[in-house]
């Protein structure tokens, strides 16, 4: 514990100023149509918004979106096209070679097309390892900004959670944008 005391002591000794904690209240952007803004920003991030009406069949919708996907993983009972339940495997490495994962998100953020996903599967690897990812999201669950988003998750209990905005991407080779650096090449958010 030597370094701990030393560091904290040094900080206390060297701190010259004391600034007040500011109020977080800020007059932030409000979109006329949150859902539309969410869809627009999701597209900017390289993702695909897809609307599902109550009459649509989820499995058909998924196979229309990803006709080539064979090894489909999901722990959601409504996803009948899933060929296995990722929560039932022993080791996260077995998720390898999954074509498509279908997961659910808690809410979307209009300003950046991100979806908050608190860990709701056994292995978080599922969100990243498949070639494509479908996120199911209640279209009424959209907040304007990250301020609202964090207000909403403050006090929530999660061991892991993430805001995901579109597919994995990189521009590390000459700033050329490429999807699918490590995570999914394609992300669709199915809004129901």
């Amino acid at each position: 514990m030597g370094s701990r005391e030393e560091i904290l002591g040094n900080i206390r000794k060297n701190t010259l100023f004391s600034f007040e904690k500011p109020s977080y209240e800020i007059d932030s952007i409000k979109y006329e149509d949150k859902l539309q803004a969410f869809c627009d920003m999701l597209k900017v991030a390289g993702g695909q918004p897809v609307f599902m009406s109550p009459d649509d069949d989820l499995d058909k919708l998924i196979s229309r979106l990803y006709p080539d996907a064979k090894r489909i993983a999901s722990n959601l009972p409504d996803v009948k096209c899933a060929v296995y339940n990722p929560d039932e495997i022993e080791n996260s490495r077995e998720l390898k070679n999954t074509d498509l994962s279908v997961v659910s998100g808690a809410f979307g953020v209009a300003e950046n097309g991100a979806v908050w996903i608190p860990l709701n599967v056994k292995y978080k690897a599922l969100y990243f390892i498949s070639e494509s990812l479908v996120i199911l999201l209640d279209k009424r669950e959209i907040v304007h900004t990250m301020h609202e988003a964090y207000k909403r998750i403050s006090g929530e209990r999660y061991g892991y959670g993430l805001f995901m905005s579109g597919p994995s991407k990189t521009a590390d080779i000459e700033q050329a944008l490429v999807f699918g650096a490590h995570g999914p090449m394609s992300v669709s958010v199915v809004l129901y």
Partner: peptide
């Protein structure tokens, strides 16, 4: 809420990074 709005917009001109993992 404040910093995640500024970070990627400033750094790469994206509204947010693809992954903000907690």
């Amino acid at each position: 809420g404040v910093f995640t709005r500024l970070l990627a917009r400033s750094g790469t001109g994206q509204p947010i990074t693809s992954y903000t993992s907690h």
